[in-house]
């Protein structure tokens, strides 16, 4: 076996650098493994329930101390200069608590990790709420966050947004099927016979999109004042940046990022999610064309699951209703939209 493994050695002399990096990685892994070996042998006599329970008692101690600090905040609110350091301190304790969970996560039962992480995020949210309630909002809230993040060196805070300097994606040239860069048009696609792979709808202004038939995956990006009517999507739909739009879409999964003032008529098998959205409203699917029943059945989307109303807001993981989305009142819904007779306007894709 040894000989065979030795034979596997393929050294590309051009890649000496990569080789060195690999060597380093390799050594650090060895180092880690031997350390782990040691720690395992020294702790092996100790049943794991012990470390779990000592974690839990430590955790609940820290938790109640943070909670009591949080509840002290109201009494401090008369003196705004004290509030800031007070909140900073709490924020620090919360990240310590989070670190404790992370460090213990490899021996804790998954239920405990999950509930501890939930507690941590609840505490963070309470802190966010309290600080936005008690500290008058400045125009530049960015500064606060930047400062808070210094406390937690080298880690990514939820607030930190990826910096996108160039918006130009590297694979834009590749022509995948889609509707792109149009203003004030009706765009019709029909995929009755052949199921299509991924389809992209992007950079449209004041357009109406009608797609008859099944798609596997749908990407929607940067739409303004558009109406988008789409037959069943067997995989998932990803929507990023939409404003003033109406969507009638059906899919197994729906993710909506960065949408504002838009209405969504959905049929969806799992829970739809929103992230960084505002003023978005939801109602059941309302699309019709000749043969849609069959298409829906073929895509396993014929049953109404009621999930159009079970929206999860990833920016608002709390029991109380998110302010970012709502149910579209019945008297404001559009009724059935029939796109059967789109043939005459059909455009080549």
């Amino acid at each position: 076996m040894d000989d065979e493994m030795e034979k596997e050695t393929i050294l590309d002399n051009k890649e000496a650098e990569a080789e060195a990096a690999l060597q380093k990685k390799h050594l650090s892994m060895l180092d880690r493994l031997s350390k782990r070996q040691q720690s395992r042998s020294t702790t092996s006599t100790e049943p794991s329930t012990d470390s779990t329970s000592s974690f839990l008692s430590r955790f609940s101690q820290l938790k109640s101390s943070i909670e009591s600090h949080l509840s002290d905040s109201q009494s401090l609110s008369s003196d705004p200069s004290q509030l800031k350091p007070h909140f900073d301190k709490i924020s620090e304790s919360i990240s310590d608590l989070e670190k404790l969970v992370a460090q213990s996560s490899y021996f804790l039962p998954s239920y405990d990790v999950r509930s501890s992480l939930k507690t941590v995020s609840d505490l963070k949210r309470s802190l966010d709420c309290l600080s936005s309630e008690l500290i008058p909002k400045k125009k530049f809230s960015f500064k606060n966050k930047a400062k808070a993040s210094k406390k937690d060196q080298g880690s990514v805070l939820p607030e930190s947004k990826p910096v996108r300097d160039s918006v130009q994606p590297s694979y834009v040239a590749r022509d995948s099927p889609g509707f792109r860069n149009k203003t004030g048009e009706v765009l019709v696609g029909e995929f009755k016979e052949s199921e299509i792979g991924e389809f992209t709808i992007s950079d449209l202004d004041s357009c109406e999109v009608r797609i008859i038939g099944c798609i596997r995956a749908l990407f929607i990006h940067r739409l303004k004042n558009c109406r988008v009517y789409v037959g069943p999507v067997t995989g998932s739909i990803l929507i990023e940046e939409a404003e003033g739009c109406v969507f009638a879409i059906a899919s197994h999964q729906i993710r909506i990022h960065g949408a504002r003032r838009s209405d969504f008529y959905l049929r969806v098998r799992s829970r739809p999610i929103v992230e960084d959205c505002n003023g978005v409203r939801f109602a059941p699917y309302c699309l019709s064309y000749r043969g849609i029943e069959e298409d829906l059945r073929g895509a396993d989307l014929d049953a109404e699951t009621g999930n159009w109303a079970n929206v999860d807001d990833f920016r608002w993981l709390r029991a109380v209703q998110s302010p970012n989305w709502s149910i579209l009142p019945e008297n404001e819904r559009v009724g059935i939209v029939d796109i059967s007779n789109s043939e005459s306007m059909k455009e080549e894709i």
């Binding site: 782990r36 989070e98 969970v101 992370a102 460090q103 996560s105 490899y106 992480l117 880690s155 990514v156 805070l157 939820p158 930190s160 990826p162 994606p169 590297s170 694979y171 834009v172 590749r174 995948s176 792979g197 991924e198 992209t200 992007s202 995956a217 990407f219 990006h221 990803l238 993710r255 990022h257 999610i273 992230e275 960084d276 990833f314 920016r315």
Partner: peptide, 30 residues
């Protein structure tokens, strides 16, 4: 999801293998 990517670091400790999953059809977010 973007909001919860910051939690990834909670799981780094003791990791032997990292699997980075890419949606090969999502060209725009490459």
């Amino acid at each position: 999801q973007k909001t919860i990517r910051s939690y990834w670091r909670n799981y780094f400790e003791q990791t032997d293998g990292l699997v980075w999953v890419v949606d090969s059809s999502d060209l725009r977010r490459l």
